[in-house]
Simulated assay, not measured.
Amino acid sequence: MAERPRYESPVERAIREAQERGEFDDLPGAGKPLRLEGTDDPMWWVRQLAEREQIDFTGALPPAVALRKEAATFPESLLDLRTEESVRAVLEDFNRRVKRDRLRPLEPRMPQLLAPTVDVDDLVERWRALRASSQPVDVDPPVTSGEARPRRRWWRRRR
């Protein structure tokens, strides 16, 4: 009895043709065992995907958790700011966002997560101390009036 032709879906046909062309030969990881540690965690594949693809899921965090993570970076994350006023503005904006988050309605069957506000004055003091410790020390003494002044550039002399 003649064998009936078997139905081949377009996906199966594309895979078979790619195998015949040798596109699956010499792939990285071929012949190596799969990494299956930690598979008792129901989200293990998501964690491995995020690690492998270097995906940042901080945008998917609940707002209170994201605010807590942001607060954990203070005052080191503020070192790029130059003035105390800008540091205070960032910290006051953070406290405003925390207070706004507290006004959100509760999610049903979820515990209420609260992010704490930060002490602006304390963090400004810590920012000052960190900034002072990270400033390079000036090794050249300042020029006094009795010493020769450095020459001014010609474009600075023209007015």
Rank of each mutant, 00 (worst) to 15 (best):
A2T: 14
P10R: 14
P10V: 14
V11Y: 14
R13T: 14
A14K: 09
I15S: 08
I15Y: 06
Q19W: 12
E20I: 06
E20T: 13
G22H: 09
E23G: 04
F24Y: 15
D25F: 14
D25E: 12
D26T: 08
D26W: 09
L27Y: 01
L27D: 03
P28I: 15
G29L: 04
A30I: 05
A30V: 06
L36I: 07
E37K: 08
G38D: 01
D40G: 09
P42R: 11
M43G: 08
M43L: 13
M43Y: 07
W44C: 10
W44Y: 05
W44F: 10
V46N: 02
R47G: 12
Q48E: 13
L49W: 06
L49C: 06
R52Y: 01
E53P: 00
I55F: 11
D56M: 08
A60G: 08
P62C: 10
P63Y: 05
V65I: 12
A66P: 00
L67I: 11
K69R: 12
A71C: 00
F74K: 02
P75A: 13
E76L: 05
E76A: 10
S77G: 06
S77D: 07
L78P: 00
L78K: 05
R82K: 11
T83I: 11
T83P: 03
S86P: 01
S86A: 15
V87N: 00
R88P: 00
V90G: 01
L91K: 03
L91M: 04
D93S: 14
D93G: 14
R97S: 02
K99G: 06
K99P: 01
R100W: 01
D101F: 04
D101Q: 07
L103N: 07
P105Q: 10
P108W: 04
P108H: 07
Q112I: 14
Q112T: 13
L114N: 07
A115V: 01
A115W: 00
T117P: 01
T117S: 06
E125C: 02
A129T: 14
L130M: 07
A132T: 05
S133E: 09
P136Y: 05
V139A: 12
P142C: 11
V143S: 04
V143T: 13
T144L: 03
G146C: 12
E147L: 14
E147S: 15
E147N: 11
A148C: 06
R149H: 07
R153N: 09
W155I: 02
R157W: 01
